[in-house]
């Protein structure tokens, strides 16, 4: 569902590309198109037959059903799927690059990159040494289960591997869309405010892990780690934390161990 978001952009504007692949446009124009204006003529109808039908259907059910299909597929193949969410600029791609460099000889990693535009992240990931597919959502502000279904099939992910999904940088909309992931990880950098968890509670409430990144910058910023943890635990007392710097690699070993143990 909802491959388009906010602007109501049509689905065909979402593209899937591996590095080196040319952008492909496939359109089918099998039928004859015609247009007509609604409301330019009247129909007779009988208002006495008006009846109320109880529906009670979850509006996100299409996405949720597809997400469950993805989850079943990942479970059957023993794929540990991680959905990485954050604001733009928290260091998701840098964390992925370092993770790939450390882990690529120890286990099989696959990456799905989500951005509105460009192949920049996929190219960085490919250089780091992992199979990757880039989803460009056009104007869409989040990935959804349908996109992951298509991207995961295209990647031909091997059994017993790890799939890291970098969502579109946005701390609001991706919270609502289950992708069928095994775990959700929210990443925050210390250059952001420590009040993020209570300003954007949905994302912290729906995540399993919180990575506090760029800790090498702590001496230069006012970020209060304890206050941040306190706010985050008020929203979600089950949240598990990793404090690290993807740049200096300090603290990376716990994050890597967690991924390897597929906890």
């Amino acid at each position: 569902m909802c491959e388009s978001c906010g602007c109501g952009q049509p689905d065909e504007n979402v593209t899937f590309r591996k590095p080196g692949e040319k952008e492909e446009h496939t359109h089918s124009h099998g039928g004859v198109t015609h247009s007509h204006i609604h409301g330019d003529h009247d129909h007779d109808h009988n208002h006495s037959e008006s009846r109320e039908i109880v529906i009670e259907q979850n509006i996100l059910q299409k996405n949720d059903l597809l997400a469950e299909r993805n989850r079943g597929y990942f479970e059957a193949k023993n794929i540990f799927a991680v959905n990485l969410v954050s604001s733009p600029g928290s260091g998701k791609t840098s964390l992925l690059e370092k993770t790939i460099r450390i882990l690529k000889d120890k286990c099989t990693l696959n990456i799905i990159e989500g951005d509105q535009q460009t192949m920049l992240d996929a190219n960085r990931i490919e250089k780091a040494g992992a199979p990757v597919i880039q989803i460009n959502t056009g104007a869409g502000c989040h990935l959804d289960a349908g996109m992951i279904n298509k991207a995961a099939k295209s990647l031909e992910i091997k059994d017993n591997s790890i799939l890291l999904i970098e969502n579109v940088g946005n701390l609001v909309c991706p919270a609502m869309f289950d992708l069928g992931e095994s775990k959700r990880v929210v990443i925050v950098s210390v250059t952001e405010g420590e009040d993020k968890p209570i300003k954007y509670p949905d994302m912290f409430q729906s995540s399993d892990i919180c990575v506090i990144n760029k800790t090498d910058l702590l001496p230069y910023v006012d970020f209060d780690v304890e206050k941040f943890r306190e706010y985050a635990c008020q929203v979600n007392p089950d949240l598990k934390f990793f404090e690290l710097s993807a740049k200096t690699e300090k603290g990376m070993e716990q994050w890597i161990r967690w991924l390897q143990e597929k906890d």
């Binding site: 109808h45 009988n46 208002h47 037959e49 008006s50 009846r51 109320e52 039908i53 109880v54 529906i55 009670e56 259907q57 979850n58 509006i59 996100l60």
Partner: peptide, 10 residues
């Protein structure tokens, strides 16, 4: 929840 509760049709 976000759900479609009911529709009234003719």
């Amino acid at each position: 929840e976000i759900q479609l509760k009911s529709i009234t049709v003719e």
